[in-house]
Computed example of a mutant assay.
Amino acid sequence: MAVINSLGTLEKFISNSDNTENAFYISEIPDVCKEYPCIVGIDEAGRGPVLGPMVYGTSFCPINEQMIYNKLDCADSKELNEEKRDLIFTNICKQNKTVGWAVDIISPNIISNNMLSRKKVSLNQISMDSAVGLIRAVESAGVKIAHVFVDTVGPPEKYQSYLKGLFPQFEITVSKKADSLYPVVSAASICAKVTRDHALKVWKFAEDIEATYENYGSGYPSDPVTKKFMEGHCDPVFGYPQLVRFSWSTAENALEKLAYHIDGENKEPTKKAPPVNNTSITSFFKLANKDNTEKKVPHEFFAQRCLSRDVEF
């Protein structure tokens, strides 16, 4: 496991991760966290954007050392500018004799697949599963957990009861705006937000797209830069690159306008207007041999993602 002690090493860790899968990192565990009862804070960043990962973060330290979060100026990450968040994150990393942290980077690909699968998994459930995974990871790493503070997803009473059922050995506090009420949750929020911001900055497209953070912005649907990216990077057959959460209504609505529409064999003809050109969808799976006879090969989309089929086209 890499040691992340700066923004540079954080970006390197993210760059070496597979964007199509979740990535997880937990810091080295301070010895004092294994010896003395600790508080643990959990919060997320990137729940609402249509682009990029959602990140759940946690931070922890001994109860008798918790004032360190105040000294680090930990506050709700949404109330801090990027420069201030980066500085606090760097200082959290420097307090590795007292403070530990972890992040769960949930790929937009995983979010979409879960929310659009036949057995749908809600974003709330994805969020709760990540929080539970962080608690278990911190406990498995040897941290002597006493009290867990969590920013809520849905009704706090219901969520708190759910977590208490899984972890009866810990005190559990679930609250709205926990990132504003509890500095340990503020620290978790900062770890999550900084990780998401830098994940967007170093995103590597598997698709044949040349774009940088400046080209797609924050990922929020209201961001003009994000809107422009969505309008200009929709393949009429395959839709959006995996940076985009297909399960968001923003993406679904855009695809209605920009992508080809395909009717199933057993469906009645729709009243939708045909595509501007008459390109057959099967042409995307075919190339010609030198003698102009048809050569059936998959579209480069599949090669870029190392996808193959067991049957011939």
Rank of each mutant, 00 (worst) to 15 (best):
residue 4 I to K: 07
residue 8 G to Q: 14
residue 9 T to C: 01
residue 15 S to L: 11
residue 17 S to Q: 08
residue 18 D to K: 02
residue 19 N to Y: 02
residue 19 N to E: 10
residue 19 N to M: 07
residue 21 E to P: 01
residue 22 N to R: 02
residue 23 A to M: 07
residue 24 F to Y: 15
residue 25 Y to T: 09
residue 31 D to S: 15
residue 33 C to E: 01
residue 37 P to M: 05
residue 43 D to F: 04
residue 43 D to T: 10
residue 44 E to T: 03
residue 45 A to R: 12
residue 47 R to I: 13
residue 56 Y to K: 04
residue 66 Q to Y: 06
residue 71 K to S: 14
residue 82 E to L: 13
residue 84 K to A: 06
residue 89 F to L: 03
residue 90 T to N: 11
residue 95 Q to S: 13
residue 95 Q to H: 11
residue 107 S to G: 10
residue 113 N to T: 06
residue 117 S to R: 04
residue 121 V to R: 05
residue 124 N to R: 00
residue 128 M to T: 07
residue 130 S to E: 02
residue 131 A to K: 11
residue 131 A to Y: 15
residue 141 A to V: 01
residue 142 G to D: 02
residue 144 K to R: 05
residue 145 I to E: 00
residue 147 H to P: 04
residue 150 V to F: 04
residue 152 T to Y: 06
residue 154 G to T: 05
residue 156 P to F: 09
residue 163 L to D: 09
residue 174 V to F: 10
residue 175 S to V: 13
residue 182 Y to H: 04
residue 184 V to A: 04
residue 186 S to D: 07
residue 191 C to R: 00
residue 193 K to N: 13
residue 199 A to G: 02
residue 201 K to A: 14
residue 202 V to C: 10
residue 206 A to P: 00
residue 209 I to V: 13
residue 214 E to C: 05
residue 214 E to R: 14
residue 215 N to E: 10
residue 223 D to L: 09
residue 226 T to R: 03
residue 228 K to M: 02
residue 230 M to R: 06
residue 232 G to E: 05
residue 235 D to S: 11
residue 235 D to R: 07
residue 238 F to T: 11
residue 246 F to R: 12
residue 251 A to Q: 09
residue 251 A to I: 03
residue 251 A to V: 00
residue 251 A to H: 00
residue 258 L to C: 04
residue 273 A to F: 10
residue 274 P to H: 07
residue 276 V to I: 08
residue 280 S to E: 14
residue 286 K to Q: 08
residue 287 L to M: 15
residue 288 A to R: 12
residue 300 E to I: 14
residue 300 E to V: 11
residue 308 S to L: 12
